[in-house]
Design a protein around this nucleic acid. Structure first.
Lengths: 343, 343
DNA sequence: CTGAAAGCGCTTACAG
DNA sequence: CTGAAAGCGCTTACAG
């Protein structure tokens, strides 16, 4: 052990002493700024290893004028979808040297607005927001200049950096899968208004048409919020009001789908024999429901990685044109017990 | 707007200028160290408000010799139990001025060991570990001196700071609830070995005895890991091997309970009419299963708050006696559809 | 209570 | 490529 005239954890100066170089060189090796000759580089790396040096990020960030922290704003980690997403974001951020401040709004609009403005207990360098309630209006009203990336399936103005999935395609994909399994009367729980159909509903409608299936307005149900409870009561309602049962149900999210399945099971409707059910998001528990739930979802790891790519870019080059900073994650269909496969 | 000879976000020096005091006084007001006269204090607070000052935590932490970061080590945010726990820890930490580095081990033993040693990409001031796999042996082998608080239902050596629930009491409570609902043949999925029963199993056994119910070894099932799959196959096994069905099942976790319910439903066993099911943890989705799951769990907010109390203490007073740093969170029984209530 | 100043451990022009 | 030094924005003895 080389003795250092210093108590406490090793500092960059200690590395420099051990390696017999200047701090500048150590810094160069660590941050890969200037070129360092291979042998020098090796000596520095050995010294780092020998004394167990770990950069002091407080000092680094102070010198760089950064916080080293990005915030992830979600309704809450109680919701498996956001929890899983947060896990992927944390991982992707760790790889890029960011620390993630997870901020839970509890779905509260005021809390969310404050978060959009970057009002946290600490300074942050950037912001990722995944929310059901933030839309174009809220974003237009934003005053903060903290770089922001939106996540999720809301429609945004063209100028908003966001990572999204192909919702139109997802809606089509759901119908196609149900039709392939033999469904002909397909309902949608959590559809948007037909007057201004959201992309997923649009895809749903388009696929019906492509397969020559009639549009039955009474099988399209709007719900006040995308929760299990809302899905359950909408399905109860559907079961009572409709003269003939649907043979397939597209639920706007997996969570809603679970409510749908609860209602069906309570009415002793068999899944998928009587009614097939498909959701979106692939929440962790979709695969452990009974029956397990077929779902359409992007690879969340990819969503997180793209969001961080975009955010990194916005932080490093604030002047980048926003048109370039949209990204779409590819979709996967995860077939499980709640739907029939083509025979 | 007061003009400042400075670009970038306002600094403490700017607050001092505006308030007409020294930086020391501003610091005193913010950190509440020395007494500051009420009028001075007011002037400082107004100045902070006026120029929108937010302390630079990198600078503060650098000066204090802290990282300002604690790590939370969990298997993964895909698991609703740990996700929910992480949410509570993040909230409790935010209130105390800590930033939480969430580290997911994926259940990997080597990754977990590295985390126990505090080997992260960044320096941390303390560590909270919630894990199914870390036990007394791993902790005894620990070399790091980074303050650590363990969370969860494992048995630890007396010297380990940890926040726990009364597992023995939880086991008893589960049986008592089932018995109150009329159950007489009670099984346990995820029991520990009878040779060295863990507290929860012990409580289970004790409660059986207190109610004069015989111990039926074939109704006690060990499982390799606490997952839905393991619970499902153990229950399948139980249903096939046993001559008479149990009328109540205690599952070691809610996740396991879900597997139990899957197996029961598949065999067209009615819940709770034929078999009542109770789990532990109150994972977010327990209440949306069909049938919704009765569960015993602590208030996770309290668990998180206590863990941070303990960790705060360990960080501030490293010499504190460890006997003082254990904490137990009170239990709640959440009665739902999967069990019968006393008639 | 207040002020001037050193120091935390980095990064980064700047001069060699 | 290297070195000496200023500066990031705080905290905290220290002298008043």
């Amino acid at each position: 052990m080389t003795d250092r005239p210093h108590t406490g954890p090793p500092r960059m100066a200690d590395v420099a002493t051990v390696a017999g170089v200047s701090m500048k060189t150590v810094s160069n090796v660590i941050n890969g700024v200037d070129k360092v000759s291979a042998p020098t580089r090796q000596r520095v790396l050995s010294a780092i290893d020998e004394i167990g040096y770990l950069p002091n990020l407080s000092a680094r960030n102070l010198a760089r004028g950064r916080a080293g922290v990005i915030a992830l704003v979600v309704p809450g980690l109680e919701l498996p979808y956001f929890a899983s997403l947060a896990g992927k974001v944390v991982e992707a951020a760790e790889r890029r040297g960011w620390l993630v401040l997870i901020h839970q709004t509890g779905g509260d609009a005021a809390t969310e607005r404050a978060a959009l403005e970057g009002n946290f207990a600490q300074r942050i360098d950037g912001l990722i927001v995944s929310s059901q309630t933030t839309g174009p209006e809220e974003l237009a009203a934003r005053a903060s200049t903290v770089p922001l990336v939106m996540l999720g399936n809301r429609a945004f103005d063209p100028g908003t950096p966001h990572v999204d999935i192909d919702n139109h395609g997802a809606g089509k994909m759901a119908v196609q899968h149900l039709v392939a399994g033999g469904c002909r009367r397909i309902a949608m729980i959590g559809a948007s208004s037909l007057l201004a159909p959201a992309p997923r509903t649009q895809g749903f409608l388009e696929a019906l048409q492509e397969h020559g299936l009639p549009l039955r307005p009474d099988l399209l149900r709007q719900i006040p919020e995308n929760t299990g409870d809302a899905g359950e009561s909408a399905t109860e309602d559907l079961l009572e009001c409709v003269d003939e049962l649907p043979d397939g149900i597209v639920a706007i999210t997996d969570w809603v789908a679970q409510g749908v399945m609860r209602a069906l099971l309570r009415h002793e409707v068999r899944i998928p024999q009587d009614v097939a059910v498909i959701g979106f998001d692939d929440i962790p528990y979709a695969r452990t429901y009974y029956p397990s739930l077929t779902s359409i979802a992007p690879d969340r790891r990819q969503v997180a990685a793209r969001a961080l790519d975009v955010l990194d870019r916005l932080i490093s080059h604030p002047s980048d044109r926003v048109e370039d900073v949209e990204a779409r994650a590819p979709l996967r269909l995860l077939v499980r017990e709640s739907t029939r496969t083509p025979s």
